[in-house]
């Protein structure tokens, strides 16, 4: 163990970890909010809505996250005057914001796809039964379809959270000092390969915790579906 490096960069790496978690929590939450209208648009009767949501989802699921981050971060830099004119430059000036925006759009597309699959997986009989009970379409969606769809979506959503933890490391390339960013800095100063291994351990611990917590959550939310 390189204790000197650990004393100098250990605390900073933990700070970096906090930044990583902030990136993930904000993006996943905003992405979840975004995914509901997108998934609905994708299944809507309007051709335009379907086409727009399809285009959005196809683009963000078909291109690398790193390329998307570059597009937003350096692309926004090019449109500074326009962004200033509409009063949004102060947001795009910040690398952290640019990453949150890109990650939200990215995970929103993936979560919409997960949600769409889950909604379609809810048996048609559920809807029919609700209709014959005289429930209105809105009620059917909110009280019958969505709760079941979310249960079906739980597992893939958990994977999506883990993918976001890992994917968020690309923020380091555009100056954000997340865990990866601090690790790169520590390596460039100490030239000690150990720092990458410490980062690896931290990432693994976070992923493992998320997995366990998610399993618990799933276990609890599906308890009514298990036979005694």
């Amino acid at each position: 163990m390189n204790w000197d490096a650990l004393a100098t960069y250990g605390p900073r790496m933990l700070q970096g970890l906090v930044v990583t978690l902030q990136l993930v929590v904000i993006s996943i939450t905003l992405g979840a909010l975004l995914s509901i209208p997108v998934a609905l648009a994708r299944m809507s009767r309007s051709r335009i809505l379907r086409a727009v949501s399809f285009g959005y989802m196809y683009f963000f699921r078909g291109t690398p996250l790193l390329a998307q981050v570059f597009l937003v971060y350096y692309g926004a830099g090019q449109f500074r005057t326009q962004l200033e004119a509409i009063g949004l430059w102060w947001l795009f000036r910040d690398a952290f914001f640019c990453c949150v925006l890109t990650f939200t759009l990215n995970t929103g597309a993936y979560q919409a796809e997960i949600l769409r699959g889950a909604i379609r997986a809810v048996p048609a009989g559920q809807r029919e039964a609700a209709m014959s009970l005289g429930l209105r379409p809105r009620q059917i969606f909110r009280k019958i379809v969505m709760p079941q769809a979310i249960l079906i979506a739980l597992r893939p959503l958990g994977n999506e959270v883990i993918l976001m933890v890992k994917g968020s490391s690309v923020a380091a390339i555009v100056t954000v000092f997340d865990l990866m960013g601090v690790t790169r800095l520590a390596y460039s100063r100490t030239f000690d390969f150990q720092v990458y291994l410490w980062a690896a351990v931290l990432y693994l611990v976070v992923v493992e915790i998320i997995r366990r917590v998610w399993d618990k959550l799933e276990h609890r939310l599906t308890r009514h579906m298990r036979s005694a």
């Binding site: 350096y74 830099g77 430059w89 000036r93 100056t175 800095l185």
Partner: peptide
């Protein structure tokens, strides 16, 4: 402090006003 992989990117962000 903001650190970039190349000097070109530092220059780019100075012009962008970041």
């Amino acid at each position: 402090i903001k650190l970039y992989p190349t000097q070109d990117e530092v220059n780019l962000d100075l012009v962008a006003g970041r």
